[in-house]
Nucleic acid binder design. Structure first.
Lengths: 110, 110
DNA sequence: CATACACATCGACAGACGTCGATACAGCGA
DNA sequence: TCGCTGTATCGACGTCTGTCGATGTGTATG
Protein backbone atom coordinates (compact mmCIF):
# COMPACT_ATOMS: atom_id res chain seq x y z
CA UNK A 1 0.00 0.00 0.00
CA UNK A 2 2.89 2.31 -0.59
CA UNK A 3 0.68 4.70 -2.45
CA UNK A 4 2.19 7.42 -0.33
CA UNK A 5 5.59 6.69 -1.84
CA UNK A 6 4.34 8.04 -5.13
CA UNK A 7 4.41 11.41 -3.40
CA UNK A 8 6.74 11.38 -0.46
CA UNK A 9 7.57 9.37 2.64
CA UNK A 10 5.96 10.20 5.99
CA UNK A 11 7.65 13.19 7.57
CA UNK A 12 8.96 11.17 10.51
CA UNK A 13 10.37 8.25 8.55
CA UNK A 14 13.57 9.99 7.51
CA UNK A 15 14.72 13.53 6.66
CA UNK A 16 13.21 14.63 3.36
CA UNK A 17 15.55 15.28 0.45
CA UNK A 18 15.52 18.66 -1.25
CA UNK A 19 13.42 17.34 -4.14
CA UNK A 20 10.89 15.62 -1.92
CA UNK A 21 10.57 18.74 0.19
CA UNK A 22 10.04 20.85 -2.91
CA UNK A 23 7.19 18.66 -4.13
CA UNK A 24 5.53 18.27 -0.76
CA UNK A 25 5.81 21.94 0.13
CA UNK A 26 3.87 22.86 -3.00
CA UNK A 27 0.82 21.03 -1.70
CA UNK A 28 0.97 22.45 1.81
CA UNK A 29 1.56 25.90 0.38
CA UNK A 30 -1.64 25.60 -1.62
CA UNK A 31 -3.60 25.17 1.62
CA UNK A 32 -1.59 27.88 3.37
CA UNK A 33 -3.86 30.73 2.35
CA UNK A 34 -7.12 31.50 4.18
CA UNK A 35 -9.10 32.19 1.02
CA UNK A 36 -7.89 29.01 -0.68
CA UNK A 37 -8.67 27.00 2.45
CA UNK A 38 -12.22 28.33 2.49
CA UNK A 39 -12.68 27.57 -1.20
CA UNK A 40 -11.31 24.08 -0.75
CA UNK A 41 -13.47 23.44 2.30
CA UNK A 42 -16.50 24.72 0.42
CA UNK A 43 -15.91 22.27 -2.42
CA UNK A 44 -15.09 19.37 -0.08
CA UNK A 45 -18.19 19.89 2.03
CA UNK A 46 -20.57 20.43 -0.88
CA UNK A 47 -23.23 17.73 -1.43
CA UNK A 48 -22.12 15.36 -4.17
CA UNK A 49 -18.47 16.17 -3.65
CA UNK A 50 -18.43 18.86 -6.29
CA UNK A 51 -19.44 22.50 -6.55
CA UNK A 52 -19.96 25.13 -9.20
CA UNK A 53 -17.83 28.22 -8.83
CA UNK A 54 -20.96 30.28 -8.34
CA UNK A 55 -21.81 28.20 -5.26
CA UNK A 56 -18.58 28.90 -3.42
CA UNK A 57 -17.39 32.33 -4.54
CA UNK A 58 -18.74 34.19 -1.52
CA UNK A 59 -15.46 34.44 0.38
CA UNK A 60 -14.98 38.20 0.44
CA UNK A 61 -12.70 38.68 -2.56
CA UNK A 62 -13.35 39.63 -6.18
CA UNK A 63 -14.26 37.14 -8.89
CA UNK A 64 -10.81 37.24 -10.58
CA UNK A 65 -9.19 36.50 -7.24
CA UNK A 66 -11.44 33.50 -6.68
CA UNK A 67 -10.52 32.22 -10.13
CA UNK A 68 -6.84 32.77 -9.38
CA UNK A 69 -6.98 30.75 -6.17
CA UNK A 70 -8.93 27.90 -7.76
CA UNK A 71 -6.23 27.71 -10.40
CA UNK A 72 -3.57 27.42 -7.71
CA UNK A 73 -5.48 24.58 -6.05
CA UNK A 74 -5.79 22.85 -9.43
CA UNK A 75 -2.07 23.23 -10.14
CA UNK A 76 -1.28 21.75 -6.73
CA UNK A 77 -3.33 18.69 -7.68
CA UNK A 78 -5.86 19.19 -4.90
CA UNK A 79 -8.83 20.04 -7.09
CA UNK A 80 -9.93 19.11 -10.60
CA UNK A 81 -12.35 21.07 -12.77
CA UNK A 82 -14.80 20.25 -15.52
CA UNK A 83 -16.94 22.53 -17.63
CA UNK A 84 -20.57 21.47 -18.08
CA UNK A 85 -22.48 23.95 -20.17
CA UNK A 86 -22.32 27.40 -18.72
CA UNK A 87 -20.84 26.40 -15.39
CA UNK A 88 -17.51 24.99 -14.23
CA UNK A 89 -17.54 22.37 -11.49
CA UNK A 90 -14.70 21.69 -9.08
CA UNK A 91 -14.17 18.51 -7.06
CA UNK A 92 -11.57 17.34 -4.58
CA UNK A 93 -8.84 14.89 -5.56
CA UNK A 94 -9.18 12.34 -2.75
CA UNK A 95 -5.96 10.39 -3.34
CA UNK A 96 -3.68 13.40 -2.96
CA UNK A 97 -5.56 14.54 0.09
CA UNK A 98 -5.27 11.15 1.76
CA UNK A 99 -1.54 11.07 1.03
CA UNK A 100 -1.09 14.42 2.73
CA UNK A 101 -3.05 13.23 5.73
CA UNK A 102 -0.89 10.14 6.14
CA UNK A 103 2.23 12.23 5.81
CA UNK A 104 1.13 13.96 9.01
CA UNK A 105 -0.57 11.24 11.02
CA UNK A 106 2.31 8.84 10.54
CA UNK A 107 4.63 11.60 11.64
CA UNK A 108 2.63 12.02 14.84
CA UNK A 109 2.64 8.31 15.66
CA UNK A 110 6.30 8.31 16.71
CA UNK B 1 -14.32 16.12 23.95
CA UNK B 2 -13.28 16.33 20.34
CA UNK B 3 -9.88 17.92 20.64
CA UNK B 4 -9.89 18.71 16.94
CA UNK B 5 -12.62 21.27 17.56
CA UNK B 6 -10.15 23.29 19.57
CA UNK B 7 -8.48 23.92 16.24
CA UNK B 8 -10.96 23.54 13.43
CA UNK B 9 -13.49 21.13 12.00
CA UNK B 10 -12.54 18.68 9.24
CA UNK B 11 -12.37 20.41 5.89
CA UNK B 12 -15.25 18.41 4.46
CA UNK B 13 -17.65 18.82 7.37
CA UNK B 14 -18.79 22.30 6.46
CA UNK B 15 -17.32 25.43 4.83
CA UNK B 16 -14.76 27.01 7.13
CA UNK B 17 -15.48 30.44 8.52
CA UNK B 18 -13.01 33.27 7.91
CA UNK B 19 -11.55 32.93 11.40
CA UNK B 20 -11.18 29.17 11.22
CA UNK B 21 -9.52 29.46 7.83
CA UNK B 22 -7.12 32.07 9.17
CA UNK B 23 -6.00 29.85 12.04
CA UNK B 24 -5.73 26.69 10.00
CA UNK B 25 -3.93 28.36 7.10
CA UNK B 26 -1.18 29.50 9.47
CA UNK B 27 -0.26 25.90 10.18
CA UNK B 28 -0.31 24.74 6.57
CA UNK B 29 1.64 27.81 5.56
CA UNK B 30 4.36 26.88 8.04
CA UNK B 31 4.84 23.58 6.20
CA UNK B 32 4.57 25.26 2.80
CA UNK B 33 8.27 26.04 2.49
CA UNK B 34 10.80 23.42 1.35
CA UNK B 35 13.44 24.40 3.90
CA UNK B 36 10.97 24.39 6.78
CA UNK B 37 9.62 21.03 5.66
CA UNK B 38 13.12 19.56 5.66
CA UNK B 39 13.84 20.99 9.10
CA UNK B 40 10.56 19.66 10.43
CA UNK B 41 11.14 16.24 8.90
CA UNK B 42 14.65 16.16 10.33
CA UNK B 43 13.34 16.83 13.83
CA UNK B 44 10.44 14.39 13.48
CA UNK B 45 12.63 11.58 12.23
CA UNK B 46 15.42 12.10 14.74
CA UNK B 47 15.92 9.33 17.33
CA UNK B 48 14.28 10.29 20.60
CA UNK B 49 11.86 12.65 18.90
CA UNK B 50 14.07 15.66 19.41
CA UNK B 51 17.10 17.19 17.74
CA UNK B 52 19.72 19.82 18.45
CA UNK B 53 19.87 22.61 15.88
CA UNK B 54 23.40 21.56 15.03
CA UNK B 55 22.10 18.11 14.00
CA UNK B 56 19.63 19.41 11.41
CA UNK B 57 21.08 22.65 10.07
CA UNK B 58 22.56 21.11 6.93
CA UNK B 59 19.79 22.16 4.55
CA UNK B 60 21.69 24.45 2.23
CA UNK B 61 20.92 27.82 3.78
CA UNK B 62 22.79 30.06 6.23
CA UNK B 63 22.59 29.69 9.99
CA UNK B 64 20.43 32.81 10.48
CA UNK B 65 17.98 31.47 7.92
CA UNK B 66 17.74 28.14 9.72
CA UNK B 67 17.04 29.99 12.96
CA UNK B 68 14.41 32.10 11.22
CA UNK B 69 12.56 29.05 9.90
CA UNK B 70 12.68 27.22 13.22
CA UNK B 71 11.10 30.28 14.79
CA UNK B 72 8.30 30.19 12.24
CA UNK B 73 7.64 26.53 13.00
CA UNK B 74 7.58 27.35 16.71
CA UNK B 75 5.16 30.24 16.21
CA UNK B 76 2.88 27.94 14.21
CA UNK B 77 2.79 25.57 17.17
CA UNK B 78 4.39 22.70 15.27
CA UNK B 79 7.66 22.63 17.19
CA UNK B 80 8.73 23.46 20.72
CA UNK B 81 12.24 24.30 21.83
CA UNK B 82 14.23 23.96 25.00
CA UNK B 83 17.74 25.12 25.83
CA UNK B 84 19.96 22.60 27.62
CA UNK B 85 23.39 24.02 28.25
CA UNK B 86 25.05 25.11 25.08
CA UNK B 87 22.54 23.57 22.69
CA UNK B 88 18.88 24.15 21.88
CA UNK B 89 16.71 21.12 21.25
CA UNK B 90 13.58 21.10 19.11
CA UNK B 91 10.78 18.51 19.24
CA UNK B 92 7.51 18.04 17.38
CA UNK B 93 4.18 18.94 18.98
CA UNK B 94 2.26 15.69 18.35
CA UNK B 95 -1.24 16.94 19.21
CA UNK B 96 -1.24 19.74 16.65
CA UNK B 97 0.19 17.45 14.03
CA UNK B 98 -2.46 14.81 14.61
CA UNK B 99 -5.18 17.46 14.37
CA UNK B 100 -3.88 18.58 10.99
CA UNK B 101 -3.77 14.99 9.78
CA UNK B 102 -7.39 14.39 10.75
CA UNK B 103 -8.41 17.62 9.08
CA UNK B 104 -7.25 16.06 5.82
CA UNK B 105 -8.09 12.38 6.20
CA UNK B 106 -11.62 13.10 7.34
CA UNK B 107 -11.99 15.40 4.35
CA UNK B 108 -10.92 12.56 2.04
CA UNK B 109 -13.36 10.09 3.58
CA UNK B 110 -16.37 11.73 1.98
C1' DC C 1 -26.39 38.11 -34.99
C1' DA C 2 -26.63 40.40 -30.57
C1' DT C 3 -26.94 40.24 -25.89
C1' DA C 4 -26.25 38.32 -21.34
C1' DC C 5 -23.99 35.49 -18.14
C1' DA C 6 -20.08 32.43 -16.09
C1' DC C 7 -15.48 32.10 -15.72
C1' DA C 8 -10.49 32.87 -17.06
C1' DT C 9 -6.58 35.78 -18.22
C1' DC C 10 -3.85 40.11 -18.17
C1' DG C 11 -1.29 43.98 -16.22
C1' DA C 12 -0.24 46.57 -12.32
C1' DC C 13 0.64 47.44 -7.60
C1' DA C 14 1.46 46.99 -2.43
C1' DG C 15 2.78 44.08 0.99
C1' DA C 16 4.68 39.67 2.56
C1' DC C 17 8.48 36.44 2.49
C1' DG C 18 13.12 34.11 2.11
C1' DT C 19 17.70 35.13 2.20
C1' DC C 20 22.05 37.01 3.63
C1' DG C 21 26.03 39.34 6.45
C1' DA C 22 26.74 41.65 10.63
C1' DT C 23 25.96 41.59 15.23
C1' DA C 24 24.16 40.39 19.85
C1' DC C 25 23.40 37.02 23.43
C1' DA C 26 24.15 32.74 26.20
C1' DG C 27 26.94 29.00 28.08
C1' DC C 28 31.29 26.75 28.70
C1' DG C 29 36.25 26.06 29.27
C1' DA C 30 40.90 27.96 30.01
C1' DT D 1 38.09 37.30 33.03
C1' DC D 2 38.76 36.20 28.29
C1' DG D 3 37.87 33.78 24.29
C1' DC D 4 35.23 30.20 21.80
C1' DT D 5 31.13 28.03 20.17
C1' DG D 6 26.06 27.60 19.42
C1' DT D 7 21.97 30.12 18.54
C1' DA D 8 19.01 34.30 17.99
C1' DT D 9 18.10 38.98 16.31
C1' DC D 10 18.70 42.95 13.15
C1' DG D 11 18.65 45.49 8.83
C1' DA D 12 18.60 45.35 4.06
C1' DC D 13 17.60 43.52 -0.38
C1' DG D 14 15.27 41.09 -4.29
C1' DT D 15 11.54 38.13 -5.31
C1' DC D 16 7.16 36.08 -4.79
C1' DT D 17 2.15 36.53 -3.93
C1' DG D 18 -2.59 38.26 -3.20
C1' DT D 19 -5.44 41.63 -4.83
C1' DC D 20 -7.85 44.47 -8.04
C1' DG D 21 -10.12 46.50 -12.54
C1' DA D 22 -10.22 45.75 -17.32
C1' DT D 23 -10.64 42.62 -20.80
C1' DG D 24 -10.98 38.06 -23.18
C1' DT D 25 -13.31 33.46 -23.98
C1' DG D 26 -16.94 30.21 -23.99
C1' DT D 27 -21.94 29.10 -23.80
C1' DA D 28 -26.77 29.75 -23.96
C1' DT D 29 -30.85 32.41 -25.53
C1' DG D 30 -33.67 35.74 -28.00
Amino acid sequence: MSKTEACCPPLAERPLTADEAERTARMFKALGDPVRLRLFSAVASHPGGEACVCDISDVGVSQPTVSHHLKKLREAGLLSSERRGTWVYYRVEPAVLAAMGQLLTKAAAT
